[in-house]
Design a protein around this nucleic acid. Structure first.
Lengths: 181, 181
DNA sequence: CTAATCTGTGAAATATATTGCGCATTCCCT
DNA sequence: AGGGAATGCGCAATATATTTCACAGATTAG
């Protein structure tokens, strides 16, 4: 199959998993059959414009991102994608940028209200994260132990094991992170 | 019909006429029927990926050009390394994290005092940057034009051409950036 | 005017995208 | 072990993209 379809299939699967959606859920959102999602994500089939467009909308990404060759992008802003929201309205996770680079680089900005906690699931081996705390205090729970980071500090750790962010301080916590896979 | 199809139809017709091709000639080159070309150029029909891809090849343009709006074309902290400092003591660039990933990912935090400017030299092709403005206003000079980013906005652009950051506002500018090579 | 080319459109035929269903497999969970 | 969720795949049915052909209007050239 064409290189184009390879890119599309990878981009779609990546975006879907980033949102934590199953194939069925994506199919429902896009009003397509799960069969079609499977076909496209495996670079089989030959989707039509409307099909791809509906998937793009369901994934909340610009259409261009689906066909973007992993190497190049055009200059421009992109608007944040709200990916997760905590009980407190100020607790949220936004995907700022996502490069379908060799393996993939993501730039995130997170906010956690006092007392808020986010428990993350393990990623595939090879995945790691960069953290940079903008304000507040971040408590980072890893299998190897607990770490505390204050504004201006950064950390680097593998995420193929369960981990959790929490704000045990009394003021808003904000930090940026990179996910490298 | 969708905006997407409007763009595609205009782009295709525009590219075809630029080459001085008739619909029939384009159809022959792309191994499609002239009927299909007519349908697509009038934003009717709903082309498949392969169809659009063949048209893109026949027109000798990247696929991405068809869809754009017709107008354009182990855990541990590390301590920051001071890499650049401006005339004003509050203007500085710190390398926060640097992953020797497949090709390399860097996470930076920058500060620019009002009036400060940093002129960057072109990087090797394939190098790109992610920007995320924390506070203040960032003026980004690219060969393709000038962009202004305020706090909370992010941008993504290739850096194989000269570019410059400047703070033309009246308050301190802070932003983080990723360099992906 | 007449011929020739280009473009748009309708309709039936054909190719293929898309669906719906069932089933196998894997993985996670208790 | 066993149950449930998620994914992949074969296959027949259906929807629709794509072709083929035929014709009409518009434009240009001789």
């Amino acid at each position: 199959m064409s290189v184009l379809q390879e890119h599309i299939s990878q981009n779609i699967r990546q975006a879907r998993q980033r949102l934590g959606l199953s194939q069925q859920e994506l199919a429902d959102r896009a009003d397509l059959s799960r069969r079609m999602i499977t076909l496209i994500e495996n670079a089989l089939g030959n989707a039509s414009l409307s099909t791809l467009d509906r998937i793009a909308h369901a994934l909340n990404v610009p259409f261009a991102d689906l066909i973007r060759p992993p190497s190049q992008t055009s200059p421009g802003e992109t608007k944040p994608i709200e990916v997760w929201q905590g009980e407190h309205p100020r607790s949220r996770a936004s995907l700022l940028q996502n490069a379908a680079a060799h393996r993939g680089v993501e730039l995130w900005e997170w906010s956690l209200a006092p007392g808020e906690k986010y428990q993350a699931e393990p990623d595939p081996v090879g995945t790691r994260e960069f953290l940079y705390v903008l304000q507040g205090t971040l408590t980072l729970d890893l299998v190897s132990g607990t770490q505390t980071l204050v504004a201006g500090q950064s950390a680097d750790f593998p995420t193929n094991q369960p981990y959790a962010y929490s704000n045990q301080g009394s003021s808003l916590l904000r930090f940026v992170k990179n996910v490298i896979s």
